[in-house]
Each structure stands twice: as C-alpha cells, then as structure tokens.
C-alpha cells in the first residue's frame, strides 16, 4: 500500500498547493529531514473518508503557514489576516480539495466517497518524529518549514 500511495499523494499535493493556494512545495526524502526542523508549533488537519475504502488523510503544517495560505487563496495581503476562523476555514478547504483529488488519484473515478468535515488541532512543539517514520507519510519542504501528509486506510470493503 505504501509504495502505491506515495507518488500519487505527492503529485496531488504539489498540484493543489500550487493551483489553489499559489504555494510552492518541494517533495523531500524523509531520510534527509533534520528532525529538529519539526521542533516548532504545528497544526494537524485530518479528514475522514468513507466508501469502498475507509480512512483519513492527515496533514501537518507549521502554524505560521495558516495566514499565508488564507492570504494566497483570497489574493489579499497577509497583514490583513486578523480573523482566525476565516484562516482556519481556508486551510480546511485546502485539505478538502487535497482529499477529494487524492481519492480519485488512488482509486479512480468510479467509487463514491463521503467526505467528513476536516478537523483541526494545534500541536505545540509535539514531536512529529514518529509521523515522519511511518511508511505512508509524504514529506515536503516549504518557505514556512516542513509539511507532512499521510493517509490511513482502515479497511477495504
């Protein structure tokens, strides 16, 4: 499963980040990531999907990235970022699109999936080292730091 998900997830993530958020990321080899690069406040976004395959897509982004994404999506200046809920709305929508595109990339256009509302959680300097070691985790570098993306597939019906 791991080998089949890595490249499609990487392709989708880079494509959506660029086209929806005008934000450029580079895939990086997990082995090359300095673990201390993850030692900063992060946000965890997760989105559950149900259908022929059940599971969740989880994204870990530096907290400093949230206002940048919001500003880029709306085409406004980052200094105008005052409303935290609007910024959260923007990154939830970002994960929503990444998840929808990822499911199609992995399993094609026939299956019907139901997507749940993305959940958001702040992680204050929690260790993400264990996430980095998981086989399904994809790793990206960005101007704001390292971004992690992983998929959990519970079962196949």
């Amino acid at each position: 499963m791991q080998l089949e998900t890595q490249q499609p997830m990487t392709d989708v993530f880079c494509r959506v980040m660029e086209s929806l958020a005008f934000y450029f990321v580079d895939p990086v080899n997990k082995a090359d990531v300095n673990i201390h690069a993850l030692d900063m406040p992060y946000r965890q976004l997760s989105m559950r999907f149900e259908g022929p395959h059940h599971g969740s897509l989880v994204m870990y982004i530096p907290q400093s990235m949230t206002p940048v994404i919001w500003a880029n999506m709306l085409g406004v200046d980052e200094s105008e970022a005052h409303d935290a809920e609007q910024q959260n709305d923007a990154i939830r929508e970002l994960l929503n699109v990444i998840c929808g595109q990822t499911l199609t990339e992995l399993w094609g256009t026939e299956p019907v999936f139901n997507l749940h509302v993305p959940q958001l959680q702040d992680l204050d300097k929690v260790s993400l080292a264990h996430t980095l070691t998981r086989p399904s985790t994809c790793c990206f570098s960005s101007d704001d730091g390292i971004i992690l993306l992983e998929i959990h597939v519970d079962e196949t019906c």
Binding site: N96, V97, C99, G100, E110, P111, V112, L115
Partner: peptide
C-alpha cells in the same frame, strides 16, 4: 462546484 471526483456521483 465540488471536490467530488466520482463520475458515478
């Protein structure tokens, strides 16, 4: 206007 990619849907 949706993230939906299923042709069936």
């Amino acid at each position: 206007v949706s993230t939906e990619g299923s042709q069936t849907r």
